[in-house]
Simulated assay, not measured.
Amino acid sequence: MIVVMKRSATDADINAMIAHVESKGLKPNVIKGSERTVIAVVGDERIAGLGSLESGPGVDEVLPILAPYKLASRELKTEPTVVQARQMKVGGANIGVMAGPCSVESEEQILASAQAVKAAGATALRGGAFKPRTSPYSFQGMKEEGLKLLAAARDATGLAVVTEVVASEDVDLVSKYADVLQIGARNMQNYRLLEAAGKSPRPVLLKRGPSATVDEWLLAAEYILDAGNPNVMLCERGIRTFETHTRFTLPLASVPYVQAKTHLPVVIDPSHGTGHTHLVTAMARAAVAAGADGLIVEVHPNPDKAMSDGYQSMNFHQFAEMMKQCGRIAAAMDRELG
């Protein structure tokens, strides 16, 4: 349920309500909006004692949250959440762009990629140091050495670093080097990992599982929010259907639909969503037009020689052209791409 405080509520009133909720064995989550404060009460609402909450000092009203995901719901927070990492802003008037190679392969490769995507207007560098692959014989990433190269590229360019964490025991290590923790599609329902990421101070980019429903995706985000991390971005990277003409099916209707359900920003991954370089620009344009809050795109100095996902990676020229085209669409919608 939501405890909506009056505009005139004091800090003492809010702290008293927090203490009262905790005394009931429930968990309070405080959301401070531009006009008033609300407290999301999570737990068995039957023991809350609705009357005692409504009569609390400074309380305006107490409302139920009907959605199964409580903290992610727009019922709790009507204002869109804006997630920031260094210069990258995702949400609101900003369409954040994360770009770079699927995997870190060398110092020369990642630094060249960082310089190129920054020059084209991106504000974050993506790159995998840990690579969960379908085959155990495929390239698995450079691990901590790859993280060090990403951090060096950030030092040289100022870009925020977005990289995947694949196990709960690695969250602290990856957080040491990265600005944003990516949780990949395979791990969307790895609840131990979600909880660990929720305890990290780093924003989280949560990719939708290839067979996950929207509710399952939002409930996965709820694990991160419930653990204490409010900075969650949802990433639509395509779902598995019977079609074979693309790697996955990229449902751009997810953007307005999910935005109507949650205050969390929605990022689109047109690289995994299509699996073909020649389709990425068109789907990126469509994503911006649909109202996406961010893009994450695979870019490589030489896609033909990439150690992973070269068939869906853009070269530097293609990415720069994509940014120009998407920038024009963003401007027409009174938003800023970067």
Results as ranks from 00 to 15, higher is better:
S135H: 09
A287E: 08
R7C: 00
K77E: 11
M314K: 04
S135Q: 12
A220T: 13
Y223K: 14
S254Q: 03
A306R: 13
A185R: 02
I268L: 09
V204R: 08
Y137R: 13
E321C: 02
T274N: 04
L205M: 15
V104T: 13
V280N: 08
A320Y: 04
P64G: 01
S55T: 08
I224A: 07
D304A: 15
A260L: 01
P270E: 04
S55E: 10
P270V: 10
K324G: 02
V161D: 14
N302L: 09
V59G: 01
T262G: 02
G327F: 05
V90A: 13
T37G: 07
A67T: 11
M233L: 14
R7L: 01
H245K: 11
L71C: 02
S103M: 03
I65N: 14
G58V: 00
V288W: 08
A67Y: 03
I239T: 14
R154C: 12
T277C: 07
E195V: 14
V297C: 05
V299T: 06
H272E: 06
I296N: 04
P210R: 08
T157A: 12
Q325G: 02
P270C: 09
Q312L: 11
H300L: 08
A289V: 06
A124M: 12
C326P: 07
Q140G: 13
Q182I: 05
R240T: 09
V97D: 11
R186N: 09
T123I: 03
G43I: 00
V299A: 06
N190L: 01
R74W: 08
L76T: 03
K77L: 12
K32R: 15
D170Q: 15
Y257H: 09
A320N: 02
Q259I: 00
G198H: 07
L337E: 05
V4Y: 06
R154Y: 05
M17T: 03
P210G: 07
